[in-house]
């Protein structure tokens, strides 16, 4: 106990004054905190700030709406693989370099590893899982088979989606256009020749083995 500097027994007033100040201080500071939190919450709501916790996100994938509850930091690739078990798109470099995670968003090929899932809301997302219909391969997939366009297969789903976006835009490509158009995908097995032939076969051009 600190030594009191005034004579006489402690008065009730003294004690209650201490208690009052202590309590008032706590009440005052909690009031400030609550006020700041409320202000921050209001600011966040006004600015439509989402996160960092989970938030509802709806993704339209291969024509079907999927409702998710994910953090803003979740990439489209992680949402597809970890939340929706669509594991066609592969996580290989995870740094916008290799193309194994390629999907099509609004008709354009993108790296799903460097796009947030929340950015893809309201857009049409196409993945390799949506290509075959009733167990029948898409002609492009069949062309990959026909032309031995895969070896270990790890880059293949990304390559197929890059090829699909490319062919959607360039239905009648030259081999030079094919090479340039698929430059964003890497294959360490070196299947590039087969992939190019698969694209040409799908376009109905000579070059693919099925047309030979």
């Amino acid at each position: 106990m600190p030594k009191r500097d005034h004579a006489g027994p402690p008065s009730e007033l003294d004690v209650s004054r201490r208690g009052f100040l202590k309590g008032a201080g706590a009440a005052l500071s909690s009031g400030i905190v609550a006020g700041a939190e409320a202000l921050e919450a209001a600011n966040r709501a006004a600015a439509k700030i989402i996160g960092p916790g989970k938030t509802p996100v709806t993704l339209k994938i291969n024509g079907v709406n999927k409702a998710l509850n994910i953090e803003p930091r979740v990439t489209l690739l992680d949402a597809l693989r970890d939340e929706l078990e669509l594991t066609g798109a592969k996580r290989v470099c995870d740094r916008s370099s290799c193309g194994a995670c390629t999907v099509i968003v609004s008709g354009k090929s993108v790296y799903a590893c460097s796009m947030l899932a929340i950015e893809a809301q309201g857009k049409n997302i196409e993945t390799v899982e949506g290509l075959s219909v009733a167990g029948k391969l898409h002609p492009l997939q069949q062309a990959f088979v026909d032309n031995d366009a895969q070896q270990c297969g790890y880059c293949t789903p990304g390559f197929v989606m890059a090829c699909k976006a490319f062919l959607d835009k360039n239905p009648n490509p030259t081999i030079e256009q094919v090479r340039k158009g698929l430059g964003g995908n890497l294959c360490r097995c070196g299947t590039y020749v087969g992939v190019a032939e698969a694209v040409l076969q799908t376009a109905g051009k000579k070059g693919g083995r099925a047309n030979a």
């Binding site: 700030i49 989402i50 996160g51 960092p52 916790g53 803003p72």
Partner: peptide, 10 residues
């Protein structure tokens, strides 16, 4: 990846 907030102002 660390957690962060996201906003898409119009």
């Amino acid at each position: 990846m660390r957690a962060f907030d996201y906003a898409a102002p119009k």
